[in-house]
Design a binder for these strands. Structure first.
Lengths: 194, 194
DNA sequence: GCTACTTTTTGATAAATGTCACATAATGAA
DNA sequence: TTCATTATGTGACATTTATCAAAAAGTAGC
């Protein structure tokens, strides 16, 4: 029980950095969400399903990926403690997902259903401030990624990753990182040798 | 005067698709923003400045770009009528911009200063719903772009552009489109020949 | 420890894309 | 229109990156 309380403190810490988080809203969040655990390599979401929950990572790590037309996994996102996970397109549009979400480690999440989230947005209008700011933050990260893919060579993208997200290298297999950087496993291996 | 009213109707039409837009909020938006015109190839924002205004495009078109380390322009966004323009990073973080915003045609905008926008967000809390939803929409577009850059070949990215944003080819110079697709002008020219 | 399995590395080669130089076409100003 | 300027296209070649095949290294279960 103590553990669960700490989980929510972790979540509220992140949220309260974005905007006002009254006690009543905290209670409503707690009541409308639940804590879920997944073992390593389990799926939170598969292609074709609707991304109808948002997950806050208490501990562990996940990757978001999709299968390209050759059926090869393409990782688009790695997320860790204190970060939020959705399949962006599916969650925001309520359409079926083309992405998978899978744990990279044993993980614990706070899961909030989309309809509950919408209910919270509606009944605690100030919660939209937090939602808006968080969306902005993840948007910025995504844009930085697109810019890197547009303008940097494979080696430069790897160096940038080393510089900005070194922890990622410790916790994510190289094969996964390669597709995230938009290159083949072999090329990543050669880049690293230098 | 009639023209200005139509401008705001255009803006409100887009906003009201995202959420409730009470008359008082409409009035506040009108009072706190202004209509501005720019000739073709004029700058709305330069590197080093803060992106402190959001622009709604009444008519015309803009591109967002930055200079890479060789000083070459890299286009990241093309925006047209009924779309919103900011330098995402600078606007959301209030840090100096690394991007430029420039008109591609003679253009008319509704300009809203960031401090005014923040004031609106604060005093009309439901406006955060609209802000959040719009941020989500642009985020989705950005993610699609990142995915294309990660997994598609130059030709596939061009074909996708043809398919999803054919109007862009009519109004944006090929040299600008090339960097947007993450390829050289020459490669784009060769792709098109086929 | 030892096997079976997965991940990473390496080599050889092919394909994609970039770069440079210049030609051609389009555009805009006088 | 004409000239100057800018944008686009083309050819030759260099470079980057992908692909395929296989070896080496690492990992998990027994």
């Amino acid at each position: 029980m103590m553990k669960e309380i700490n989980c929510y403190e972790q979540l509220f810490h992140v949220f309260s950095k974005m905007g006002r988080l009254p006690v009543l809203l905290k209670e409503a969040i707690t009541e409308n969400s639940k804590i879920v655990s997944f073992k390593k390599n389990e799926r939170l979401l598969s292609e074709g399903e609707k991304s109808d929950s948002i997950y806050f990572i208490i501990s562990g790590a996940v990757r978001v990926f999709y299968l390209n037309k050759e059926g090869i996994e393409t990782n688009t996102w790695f997320l860790f403690e204190n970060e939020l996970v959705i399949s962006v397109f599916s969650f925001f549009t309520s359409q079926p997902s083309f992405e998978y979400i899978e744990t990279l480690e044993d993980s614990v999440f706070i899961a909030l259903k989309k309809d509950k989230l919408d209910w919270l947005y509606e009944h605690f209008v100030e919660f939209n401030i937090i939602g808006r700011r968080l969306t902005e933050l993840y948007y910025i990260r995504n844009e930085a990624q697109a810019n890197a893919l547009r303008m940097l060579s494979a080696k430069e993208r790897y160096d940038l990753l080393l510089q900005t997200q070194p922890h990622l290298l410790q916790r994510v297999a190289l094969g996964h990182i390669a597709s995230y950087l938009g290159i083949s496993r072999e090329t990543l291996s050669r880049i690293r040798k230098k």
